[in-house]
């Protein structure tokens, strides 16, 4: 028997992560794919986004021609401030990050382990200097750390591993993983599959994942709306 399934594209992954951001939540979005989640918060929910460079109340991208050179996000792209948004200096921005004031930090990752260890700051490429930015602060500080990443690397090898091979950003911090194939919770009892894309089986997903997966009793199909890739 062959299994046929269609992985989510990047916007669909961001959409799925955004559905879990609750009314009133204060949320930091990592650079890259997590940033896209801001566009997919369900209508009517007020979620407040934080940026490490000193913004609480980050808004959408500015309309072309209205960019302000003094208003950028953590990825150094032009951004906007929503009504009620404020600025703060770096030490307070990171106090919010480190001091468990943020409800959710949604991060990108290279690898996540069975124990929720996170590796997302260096691939140890010797030809380039390392950079850590705010990754280690973000990984220890928020009330809940969630990760959004492709299920496998570009060679099809698992990125959810028994133990991370790359240097750790922080141990035991990840609680939920959104991949292009599944939504997986990291628990003290192991990894639980909450959702899988249509056509996926636990057996096939297990082949693409190093540690043992368990299927949650109330698991569901992962069915995002159609979106251009």
């Amino acid at each position: 028997m062959t299994t046929t399934y269609k992985p989510l594209n990047r916007d669909q992954m961001a959409w799925r992560a955004a559905q879990d951001l609750q009314e009133g939540a204060y949320v930091n979005l990592g650079i890259g794919m997590p940033t896209r989640a801001a566009s997919y918060v369900p209508d009517g929910r007020e979620v407040i986004f934080h940026s490490e460079n000193g913004i609480l109340g980050l808004g959408p991208k500015p309309e072309p021609g209205t960019e302000d050179e003094n208003l950028i996000d953590a990825g150094k792209n032009y951004t906007t401030l929503i009504k009620g948004g404020v600025f703060m200096h770096h030490a307070d921005a990171f106090l919010m990050i480190r001091g468990k004031h943020l409800d959710v930090s949604l991060l990108g990752a290279f690898e996540v382990s069975e124990a929720g260890d996170l590796a997302n700051w260096t691939t140890e490429d010797p030809s380039f200097p390392p950079g850590v930015g705010g990754a280690m602060d973000l990984a220890v500080g928020a009330k809940e750390i969630r990760v959004i990443m492709d299920h496998t690397d570009k060679n099809g090898k698992p990125r959810i591993l028994n133990k991370c091979r790359l240097p750790l950003t922080a141990p035991g911090c990840v609680k939920r993983i959104y991949t292009n194939l599944a939504v997986i919770d990291v628990t003290a009892q192991g990894l639980f599959v909450r959702e899988m894309v249509e056509g996926m089986t636990l057996e096939k997903l297990q082949e693409l994942t190093e540690p043992k997966l368990q299927l949650a009793n109330d698991w569901r199909a992962l069915t995002p709306p159609a979106m251009a890739a």
Binding site: E52, H89, H90, A91, A93, F94, L95, I97, R98, P129, P130, G131, V132, G133, G134, A135, M136, D137
Partner: peptide
């Protein structure tokens, strides 16, 4: 190399 929040 120092994490951003630790530098500040």
């Amino acid at each position: 190399l120092v994490p951003q929040g630790i530098i500040s």
